[in-house]
Design a protein around this nucleic acid. Structure first.
Lengths: 244, 244
DNA sequence: AAGTCAATAAAAAGTACGATTATTTTTTAC
DNA sequence: GTAAAAAATAATCGTACTTTTTATTGACTT
């Protein structure tokens, strides 16, 4: 049960004093600089960050809402056990993978996508409306248009397609899961340094075709192929990162 | 852009004044009593709940952490657009389905489980350690032992088995998703008024056997059968609820 | 004498309130 | 049309007070 006084802090956070404390502490916790059961002395923190008690308390409250810290009278505020952390929370994901890239996470992300996204494609094929179809076509067109533009546009276009497919699946719970995945996807793309090849666009077009024709099995298969290709790209990038 | 003054409040919350405000407002938002873009007047709220500004502010901060509200100077605090809500947050799920049961949600939950859990079983079959196996056997024994006991024990035993399987799959990201599902499962069980039949325990045993023998495909198939049966039970319960 | 239970004390979270600061939008003046 | 000023409100601050939980102590029982 260590106490936490001094450590290098490099996060800037959003803007306010309170957000700075939230992201600094949040980053420290999810990256293991602070381990579960460590004490968080409130007065030490307000000195560390040069903010008032209110700011520290509200920051701790936010972290508590994400399951990162707990507090009890006579015991103090402390880092919560890892099982309680809301690992799917957008902020938590960002804090975990802001600077470095975790290869284990990339592997797990690939597995989850390989499980979830083909199912999404199948559901979309069964339930898509004409409106969904139009959105998907727009997204695909955007992907093709992004061909000659900066890489960040590729990422956004890719994400837009998957988002449209998600809406077409008409399962809000599933959509939430995929949205959580999205944070991971942006990270992955910065790791792989993804560029949309014409091949990639073709694969997406294949999915769209199956969805339009309401061929559930075909949509599922096409999406699986797409994700498997994506995983292969990540593996390739890992080799490059490892050998340089 | 309505303002929110008067409405029936039945939630008790955890204990403190601040938690009461969080759960009351959270429930009101996720259940549509407060719609996105509605204003949340801080001074009105402190009168409504007979608490100080501090309590209201910290409550709003917690809700902001879950993406339920936003705040900007000159504009005030307001209900955030639905896309920003952390629908997988444990509290949010609980608030949404505390009292009534949403049949649409049950359908969506079934679909998600049918997608995720067979994949979990497959992964568990490939990666389980001996320790994982022992845990699964303990969980199955607990399920059988719960046979003659209150229904709540059945639910906990069932959940414990799925949790052990999740650990055996060794994919933390996937585990988080399933944990989010767990909140839904408790709700479902109260809807179905689930009782563990010996048949149910046998099906679980089938999964365990496949996992022990590291037969990925068999584990996946057995789990799919289990979930399909579970979905059938929900459908049956829906008919009963509908016709009474 | 040893162990258990209850009353009490202490420590830290939680609550409250009033004042001050910062930020953003609207208005007004040039 | 642009820029500066004003107004509205969230954000922050500091301090005092309250509640809750746990540890300690002492009495009581076996």
């Amino acid at each position: 049960m260590r106490a936490w006084h001094d450590s290098a802090m490099t996060e800037i956070g959003r803007s306010g004093a309170h957000d700075r404390v939230v992201s600094s502490l949040g980053t420290a916790i999810v990256n293991g600089e602070l381990v579960p059961d460590d004490d968080l002395d409130v007065v030490a923190l307000q000195e560390r960050f040069s903010v008032s008690r209110t700011a520290v308390r509200e920051a701790l409250r936010v972290l508590a809402a994400k399951g990162l810290v707990g507090a009890r009278p006579r015991r103090g505020t402390f880092v919560a056990p890892r099982e309680q952390w809301a690992l799917l929370d957008a902020d938590v994901l960002r804090w975990r993978f802001a600077d470095r890239v975790d290869e284990t996470f990339l592997d797990e992300l690939g597995e989850v996508r390989l499980t979830v996204e083909p199912a999404v494609a199948r559901m979309a094929a069964l339930r898509r409306t004409d409106r969904d179809l139009a959105d998907l076509e727009d997204a695909l067109a955007a992907m093709r248009a992004a061909a000659g533009r900066p890489a960040v546009d590729h990422v956004e276009a890719d994400l837009a397609f998957h988002h449209a497919l998600l809406r077409a699946a008409h399962n809000e719970l599933m959509a939430q899961m995929a949205t959580a995945i999205e944070a991971g996807l942006r990270l992955r793309d910065q790791f792989v340094h993804a560029t949309l090849t014409s091949e990639s666009a073709d694969k997406h077009a294949e999915v769209l075709l199956a969805v339009r024709r309401q061929r559930a099995k075909a949509a599922e298969t096409a999406m699986r192929a797409l994700i498997e290709r994506s995983i292969a790209d990540v593996d390739l990038a890992k080799k490059v990162h490892g050998s340089r």
